[in-house]
Design a protein around this nucleic acid. Structure first.
Lengths: 248, 248
DNA sequence: TATAAATATTCACGAGAGGCGAATTTTAAC
DNA sequence: GTTAAAATTCGCCTCTCGTGAATATTTATA
């Protein structure tokens, strides 16, 4: 996993413990020790440290992720004022189209939806906070299409092209072509490549300096989503967003 | 800060670095080193580790909180299925009252709002994810009122009674009396004790086993909020929630 | 309730990793 | 293009982390 530079094994171990707690959705000390092949006493010291810093909480004898992650996560989610601008426009677009609109950003070669605006506020977007691979989501492809071949290759080297459905793009060449098509038509498509029964239309949002801020996508069931209706509205929204960002 | 047990200084240092990045809303390596009085090379190693694990991201030469915090935070936010039940009811209550309804949980002696339901979906509750002290919020007092004197004292020992406004309760005796009144009337009140111009009515939500799951509060400007209107509705909602939780 | 098994916590010690300062490279400022 | 500041690498020494054994506590079973 270490990309470069010196890794501090102690910190790395603590973070592996956090990952295990997350994966197991709560875990006892001995479970964690067994999972990571560490001595009980070692895990004990790590958990004590993590709990004192509120990253982890103890309920009975089970350890869980602490709400401090939520606290820090919300900070990350609102880090840039641009995000809030996007959210407002995404909300309006969602109302106009009566479809789900998601805003995703990317880090370390994967993307995460940080806002999901929905016409039905009673339901929450279930993909918010999940990691997605770039090659099988509309948002991801929209961003990849804006990047240099070099940067795309870095992502492929690190994450490969794992298949989620039978429609997932599985070869490098195919992906390059798809990105070319995306650039030509001006928007990206996800045709049930990540989830059966879900398609999406995506467009990247670019900063004034040309870098990519993130990506908007409109998603829904294939029978309901028509490119002809959605693309002009989405395109208009992205233009407005970029204008508003620039005029700040 | 260490409550008990052995602290691993390496992990603790890494987490202090995360806190500094959070407080400074992004920081350069040398800033962090200066702030924590550490050698540049030391901070470098920590940041390398944190970045490899995606907890931290580098933008230019500034380090920022990584979206992995958001990812893990969302996991924490949805940890218990009960939370989603509460959210649904809170949403309905918000629609009925046309006021803001927040759901807070507590950990390590402070509380955090994890859901904020609002009649106007264009705006987001700005307190979501913030830490609150228990003694100056309606949610906090509602939960304290359900706890043993012993447990309340633990909180006071750790966090004291910091004043946010001139209405904040500042003495232990006064707080004990307030909690007594809260138990008597069956709900808690926040009379501009945390924020000028904001009052709130709160009630704790208890699990079938008698422990406290969290707390709901309805908040708004004093001129609009009448206890007579709000309390019966809030009370009814809490009863429904507890029934639904029990019947799972 | 008593007993046994499993799990959690404490402790002291030795190996090895982390923290440091100096040297080098890179980035930013002028 | 020159200088200053910041980032990165490196090797060394000390101190800390990881460990297993011992103790305490919790959970399961009779």
């Amino acid at each position: 996993m270490p990309e470069h530079g010196r890794e501090l094994t102690t910190t790395a171990t603590s973070l592996r413990i956090v990952d295990v707690i997350n994966q197991l959705e709560g875990a006892r000390m001995s479970e964690i020790a067994a999972e990571l092949d560490l001595a009980n006493s070692t895990v004990h010291a790590h958990l004590t440290t993590l709990a004192n810093r509120e990253l982890v909480m103890k309920e009975g004898n089970e350890f869980h992720l602490g709400i401090k992650f939520f606290h820090l996560g919300e900070q990350a989610r609102h880090r840039k004022p641009e995000y809030e601008i996007v959210r407002r426009h995404a909300h309006e677009l969602s109302n106009r189209l009566n479809e789900e609109v998601a805003f995703a950003i990317t880090e370390h070669g994967r993307s995460v939806i940080i806002f999901d605006e929905n016409n039905d506020p009673a339901k929450e977007g279930f993909q918010v906070g999940r990691y997605f691979h770039m090659h099988n989501s509309a948002s991801g492809k929209a961003m990849l299409a804006e990047w240099s071949r070099e940067r795309v290759d870095e992502v492929l080297d690190r994450w490969g092209l794992p298949a989620e459905t039978e429609n997932t793009i599985q070869s490098t060449e195919e992906l390059y072509e798809e990105l070319e098509r995306t650039r030509d038509r001006g928007y990206s498509l996800n045709r049930q490549e990540a989830l059966e029964g879900l398609m999406a239309v995506g467009m990247a949002i670019t900063n004034p300096d040309g870098s990519v801020l993130g990506s908007l996508d409109v998603s829904g069931p294939p029978y309901r989503l028509s490119e002809e209706q959605i693309v002009p509205e989405l395109s208009e929204t992205v233009t407005q967003i970029e204008r508003e960002i620039e005029s700040r």
